[in-house]
Design a protein around this nucleic acid. Sequence first.
DNA 1: CGCTAATTTATCGATTTCGATAAAAATTGT
DNA 2: ACAATTTTTATCGAAATCGATAAATTAGCG
Lengths: 96, 96
Amino acid sequence: MNKDQRKKRLVEIGSRIRKARKENGLNLHELALLSGISAPALSLIETGRRDLRITTLCQIATALRVAVGDLLEDRTKELSTAGAGKDEGYDLGDYM
Amino acid sequence: MNKDQRKKRLVEIGSRIRKARKENGLNLHELALLSGISAPALSLIETGRRDLRITTLCQIATALRVAVGDLLEDRTKELSTAGAGKDEGYDLGDYM
DNA sequence: CGCTAATTTATCGATTTCGATAAAAATTGT
DNA sequence: ACAATTTTTATCGAAATCGATAAATTAGCG
């Protein structure tokens, strides 16, 4: 989980939020009222330039009437992907 | 999405993290090394007293090899619950 | 009970989120 | 082209996250 991957995640989450908002026919101002998150903050979030807190994400999800998980990751496929190689054990090597 | 509900969510998320950590036989120090989140911060998170950022949650999920969504909500049941009453329209009444 | 590991709590400082507000830029419709 | 709406950007201040560190508390075990 490096910096680039995190940024990418934020961008993805942001576009999912924007998509859901559009589908509900809301503008930023309206979503701001419904969620309690200001429009400028929402703008930063939707464009993936803010690392929002999870309760903020929950507020947005609630306002948009979607599950939080739906904003976090693509759920068109499977249920619980988990990571690859669940059975390989941890390597704390360099730290011990 | 009021304050109490948010707090409750943080507690739930925290216990899911702790559960996953225990299942992997890791202590806070080890998870700290793997995730890059300090042990004191992890302690606050697991006890639901810190409103962590989503990238932090992602780091933890990656380190624990679980999907982020698995830490956010109960996924033993269905795929994408969304909210109840997806068809009722929004009431911006008092704001307009 | 003692000993050790694990967790919690407390400070501190740097960085970041977030609301509020206003202004600028982009989008949309007429 | 013009006006209105929507989105973006910037600035400010308050509050919160987070790492680092150290101390205190708790757990577990012989």
